[in-house]
Computed example of a mutant assay.
Amino acid sequence: MSNEVLAVVAGKEITNAELDAFLQNAPREQQAYVTNPQFRQQYLEQLISLHLFAQAGEDAKLEETEEFAKILENAKRDILAQLAMRETLKDVTVTDEEVAAYYEENKQQFTKGETVSAKHILVDSEEKCTSVLESITSGEKAFEDAAKEVSTCPSGARGGDLGEFGKGQMVKEFEEAAFAAEIGHVVGPVKTQFGYHLIKVEKKNEASVAAFDEVKEAIKRNLIQQKQNAAYNAKVQELKEKYLQK
């Protein structure tokens, strides 16, 4: 229950609701553990310590010091500024129509380069690579079986499958050979810094524009950010004219 009293420090009750609010300040990566009893107990101990030190500061009349007054003044300024900025940005929205219009007007931004889907076999010498190629071209072994048997790349366990990749994702020599290869043909040996490769291209995909559904959320976030920046800058200018003394 939210009003359950978990501890009492100098007559002040620490409730479950206060602990829940305190837990909201836990790092994002720890938020998944806020219902864990042991985790909550650790934060309860921190909260109790916070109350203990606050009480000690009160007993020492630290709130009467100049330092306390200065910190309090700065905290008040920061809180008021945050609330005012939130008020400025609260009504910033982006409609579905705006998102769709941006997509149509800026399709060049969402062009995906050509890609290939390929498999490869990696070995440490040109002689071994040539030998494996001969066993594949003769029909003695399937490319995928050879990859599982001899490839030193972790992809060997998947029959050499590298999935789909675009330009700039592989080393230059490998990329050039893969994009130049005919679908279904095994090319190699191709030498790279990693060794010698045999490459089998399974599929080629021409450059295309990403579908609207793929990018609409990213567009919306971008437009909201732009509108928030504009609203913020406009408000700053307005407040400068009102309050800034020249």
Rank of each mutant, 00 (worst) to 15 (best):
Q38T: 09
E202A: 04
K107R: 14
L80C: 02
G166A: 11
H120Q: 00
A181F: 00
S135I: 09
V187D: 03
Q237K: 10
V209I: 09
D124W: 05
Q82P: 05
E105N: 14
Q108C: 08
F165S: 04
K119C: 07
A142G: 14
A10W: 03
A210P: 03
V132H: 11
K204Y: 08
L52P: 00
L198N: 06
L52G: 00
K203R: 12
K141R: 13
Y43R: 02
I121N: 04
K61S: 10
A69K: 15
K12I: 03
I183R: 13
V186S: 07
R86H: 15
A157R: 04
C153G: 12
M170P: 00
V215A: 04
L223R: 01
V8L: 00
E13C: 08
A218C: 08
A60G: 04
L6T: 00
N205I: 15
S2K: 12
T93G: 14
E97C: 06
E164H: 13
S2M: 05
E126F: 03
N16C: 14
Q225H: 10
L89H: 06
Q46V: 00
L198P: 08
T15P: 03
P37K: 04
N3H: 15
D145C: 01
V150W: 07
S208R: 09
A21D: 12
E140N: 10
Q30W: 12
A210T: 00
T130M: 15
K172I: 02
L47A: 00
V186K: 05
M170Q: 14
T115N: 13
N3T: 12
E87Q: 13
L44G: 02
V34W: 06
Q38P: 03
K70H: 07
E114K: 10
F194E: 02
K246L: 14
G159I: 01
K90C: 05
A207G: 09
L133Y: 06
E126Q: 15
E206R: 11
T130L: 06
K70C: 03
V190S: 05
I224T: 10
Q193V: 11
A21G: 06
V150P: 04
K148Q: 11
E144I: 01
K216L: 09
V116G: 10
A230D: 12
L162N: 08
V8K: 04
F143Y: 05
A56C: 05
H197Q: 01
K107Y: 05
K216Y: 09
E98C: 02
L133V: 04
D78C: 10
V150Y: 05
N222H: 09
L122S: 06
A142L: 11
L50N: 06
S2N: 11
I48L: 03
L239W: 11
T65L: 12
D145P: 02
P189T: 09
A84P: 07
M85A: 11
Q193G: 15
I136Y: 03
T95R: 04
Y33E: 01
D161W: 03
R221F: 15
V186E: 10
L89E: 06
A10V: 03
L83P: 02
K90F: 11
Q245G: 01
K128G: 07
